[in-house]
Design a protein around this nucleic acid. Structure first.
Length: 255
DNA sequence: ATTCGTGTTTCAAA
DNA sequence: GTTTGAAACACGAA
């Protein structure tokens, strides 16, 4: 469910609520935990983000959290709560997850680097705009359609299915083009529009304060989820297809 | 009743 | 290197 920008907003909210506090943890669903054991309490020194992974850091231990499709952090208890953060001197904070796909690893802080090395997580395309050469280095040799290439977390980390459609639409690149055939100008556009897309989403989210635009409410995207609707740029009906088992949306005329 | 599709990502196998 | 399917899980819709 969460786009990268939503994870970043969650990071900021968690940071504001947890850092420099003794934080108690109440685990309501043990299936959340993939490694280690959730401690009763920690003094949190930082809340960081690596792609869509959230890191709740203390001196000895770090909680690495991934929300997957349906996890959600919220200040209000709602739905199926799987973990409660209880900071001293502040209100509790909830991780809810109706499908229980979210994952948590409790690691010694010294082993966090190794954790990400083992998962061969690629580099971040946001918030700094990455130039064409950066994209060419990472995806320039990939034969698969650029839509699929953008989801390769081992090359470029943090872009999901929604972002891939939206960025390609903004950059006017057809999703089925083999990544290796893209010109430097097209990669430059993808780099620029990746940041534009995520910046805009973050702005919207900050205004809503963790309500998650990708759940409920009106569709905030230009082409994603809009098959048959007019393209916002040219009015042509938005197409829908499937690449690698994931749905893709694009404008057959201006892309 | 059963199947399908759903925002994520990794992994194994072909 | 690519492509495909499965897996984690739950639920609403067809």
């Amino acid at each position: 469910m969460p786009e990268l920008a939503e994870v970043e907003l969650a990071r900021r909210v968690l940071r504001d609520r947890l850092v420099d506090r003794e934080v108690g943890f109440r685990l309501l669903d043990p299936r959340l935990v993939r490694a280690g054991e959730v401690p009763a309490a920690l003094t949190v020194t930082a809340v960081l983000r690596r792609a869509k992974y959230l890191l709740v850091v203390s001196q000895r231990e770090t909680l690495v959290l991934h929300l997957r499709m349906t996890g959600r952090l919220s200040g209000a208890e709602a739905g199926r709560v799987v973990l409660v953060f209880e900071p001293s001197g502040g209100p509790p904070f909830y991780l809810e997850d109706p499908r229980r796909l979210a994952e948590l690893w409790v690691l010694p802080s010294s082993e966090v680097e190794g954790f990400f090395t083992a998962r061969s997580l690629g580099d971040a395309p946001w918030p700094e705009v990455r130039p064409a050469a950066w994209w060419l280095e990472r995806l320039g040799g990939v034969r698969s359609p650029v839509k699929i290439a953008l989801l390769r977390q081992d090359r470029v980390a943090g872009l999901g299915n929604i972002a891939a459609s939206e960025v390609l639409w903004r950059a006017r690149v057809p999703p089925m083009r083999p990544a290796r055939e893209l010109s430097p100008a097209e990669w430059e556009a993808i780099g620029r529009h990746t940041v534009a897309h995520l910046d805009r989403l973050l702005d919207v989210e900050v205004g809503l304060d963790l309500t998650y635009v990708t759940r409920g409410g009106p569709n905030p995207f230009s082409v994603y989820g809009r098959a048959g609707a007019p393209c916002p740029r040219c009015g042509t009906a938005v197409a829908r297809g499937v690449h690698g088992g994931r749905s893709t949306f694009w404008c057959p005329r201006c892309q």
